[in-house]
Amino acid sequence: MGGISVHPLETQENRDMEDFIQYTVQGLSAGGFYALAALGLAVIFGALGVVNFAHGACYMLGAVGAAVLLGTFNINFWAALVIIPLLMFGFGVLIERLLIQWLLRLDILYNFLLTFGLALLLVDLVKREYGVSGLPYEVPPGLEGLVTIGSVSIQKYQLFVFAFSVVICLAVWLLLTRTRVGMIVRAATEEPERTRALGINVGRWVTPIFGFGIALAGLAGVLAAPFRAITASMGSNFIIVLFAIVVIGGLGSILGAVVAGFLVGLVEAYGQAYAPSFSQLVIFILMAIVILVRPAGLFGRRQEAV
């Protein structure tokens, strides 16, 4: 019996294919939390006209929050998946009421600066409390290890992240396209003034939409916790990729944010695998090409490309 290979027909070509599939799954799972966070960014930009520079910090808070829940309160991943977005929603509502709303009537730059400052503040607060080294987080029970499909081995958790984020994106999509609330959000995003003149109190929707966008960033953070280093600065690089994503997808376009999120996840994974020294650069090359060919982004409308 000895000496028989597990995959007797394995060839170099097969192995390349297996690697490729693994990178693809890796890219789709990374794309999953890019898509969720970018969706939040797009919804906020659409409804408020605010470019939320604190989005990366909110993603970081989501991951740190999950680690604290587990480490201090022994609350597991599945509960964190529900608790953290709820907490972040509350946090978003607070920020909008206390800070953002006062600057909405001013130039877009004011909220840009405010959220930028907020990001610095949040990062430093977390640094002071938890230091700069990473917080530990285990892959949740039941999702450890590999699943083997044919001859390809894939991390269970990566598959889970991909599937979960697709489900959430679909749910948000249905919410936006099939409900009255979603219809009002779309209308208010497209033409806030006109929507007011048609008898809809747009201002009432602004706060929950902001909270919702922040909750999505937090959710992405929880998903990232088991396989990214949880540090105070984990959001800084993330926010740069996020901006590349919303530019590629088209500012304010919800579908664009999701598609570009997965696209960038894939491009990044392939880049890391096949051109490691260029892996970050690849995203921005993609962005440059998209801006050259379609300045408004893949799914952006002309007037949104301001």
């Binding site: 219809m183 779309r186 209308a187 995003t189 497209e190 033409e191 003034e193 006109r194 007011r196 003149a197 048609l198 008898g199 809809i200 109190n201 747009v202 409308r301």
Partner: peptide, 22 residues
């Protein structure tokens, strides 16, 4: 504006006010 609309003023703007996403 939304209170005025609810009080019974109906606006038909010169650009017709269509929503592209609706």
């Amino acid at each position: 504006p939304d209170q005025r609309a609810k009080a019974g003023i109906g606006w038909v703007p010169d650009d017709r006010g269509m929503y592209a996403s609706l």
